[in-house]
Design a protein around this nucleic acid. Sequence first.
RNA 1: GCUCCGGUAGUAUAGACCGGUCAAGUAUUCCGGCCUUUCGAGCCGGAGACCCGGGUUCAAAUCCCGGCCGGAGCACCA
Length: 503
Amino acid sequence: MTKEKGKVEGERALPPLPNVEKYGRVVTRFAPNPDCVLHLGSARAIILSHEYARMYNGRFILRFEDTDPRLKKSSLQFMDLIREDMEWLGCVPDEEYIQSDRIEIYYEYAERLIKDGYAYICTCKPEESRAKIMFGEPCPCRELPPEENLRRWEAMLSGLYAEGEAVMRIKTDLKHPNPAIRDWPAFRVIDTKKYPHPRVGSKYRVWPLYNFACGIDDHLMGITHIIRGKEHLTNQERQKYLYRYLGWEYPEAIHYGRLKIEGASLSKSKIVRGVREGLYTGWDDPRLATFLALKRRGIRPEAIRRLILDIGPRPADITLSWDNLYAHNRKIVDPIADRFFFIWDPVKLIVDGVERPITVNIPLHPDHPERGKRTFNIRPVNGVATLLISGRDAERLQPGTIVRLMELFNITVRGVYGDSVRASFHSEPYIEAKKVGAQLIHWLPEGECLECNVIMPDNSIINGLVEKSIRMAHPDKIVQFERFGFARIDSLGEKIVAYFAHK
RNA sequence: GCUCCGGUAGUAUAGACCGGUCAAGUAUUCCGGCCUUUCGAGCCGGAGACCCGGGUUCAAAUCCCGGCCGGAGCACCA
């Protein structure tokens, strides 16, 4: 093993995959149930699987596991949204499969296992078989000869059993110390007249369970390295029986720990329910940790990728801090975000002693003057200029202090009169402000600004005004509102709408 | 209750398989300084961690045992 874990530009290299040399080519997969949009919780499986495939010049497969038309119903809409999410993330699969297309394949293997005496059709009441298994005792069905089981299987397929009346189980070890491993269920009956599958309707009424479909597919698709959460550890044990009976070798499996992010729920059912009930504004509600929400807030996919690479595949449970994501994103976004003045909670600033009109040009980016400038015009009336400053700054202006209006001039604060702040022109050069250590604040000329709503991560709205040059931007652009934070321009209509990313 | 998996600074991660070079590295966060016409970025410095108790050993973050804490599974869900 190499001692140097080559670090590229602050990006952590992933630890090597086990036994790569055993396989001709690394093949990984991401296998979601399309019953929700993707979120940060899925990021680890997707990005790690994709990254490892890329690292070893292998293949990355997307497999939709839509085998529950009843409880965890999938939908075509989610399949499309998942594909879009993955493309946005930069994890485009080399191949795509959908399990509801492969039902007949699963049937073939089911039959083979029954014939070989490794599986049986159990027609006991669900509670009864559960109890027997807990005690490690066989039910009468388990002892039936393969021919009888085959007959029952045919009956299952032809619709002779209703929901709950028959289930196919894989024989394992009834004395296994972990009851979860004992004779696990592989197929059940679903009344698809009542619960039609979104893709294949009521074509099938016998549906494979997770361990069967997943186990068969991982082998058939040549998956060499399975990367998934450690909640699947017992599933691995279950599936190993399947592999033994079929004479297959189980792939390498990496089980990473549970990922949480402070303050956000990564539960798919809660997200789906919340959106359906109108608790959230949609899949991209800023309070959610869905990729759609992160995207809308101006989090770049590359930041998510770096975060996940940072975290790696270790099995310890972790709770991420948003700061961690923001730090990555800031590094990506800071060099490209144009700067604008945004005044929240605006307060009038009336400055006297301004003898002539002034036009100032301020670079769109302090480090990249070549990118252009924005222009402001101040037209004093009888030596009095009316500007706007943020309420938070206004509160802190003590009478008598000198303050620099960024890129404009220095003022001496007189005091607050009514709802406006009064001040007098002090001097123009920046050096004067520097000499006295004056505070720098940003401003807008009255009449040269547009209304702007910034949607915050908690879905609250900050009302304010933004300079008219914001029209130079376009929707989806990430900008920095100086002394406020980074935000993504959402729309440039009558009223400007932006989503706050982070400081 | 049963089965399994974890526990390094506020957060995340390296080191653990193959004990010493780890009085523990890195990123972020926080604090201070420099720089800068942003409370942004950059640069420099600082603070901050091996869950606890035993054992093995010349030597333990690393191996073993016990405890504590956290998580997952025990569905005719995935």
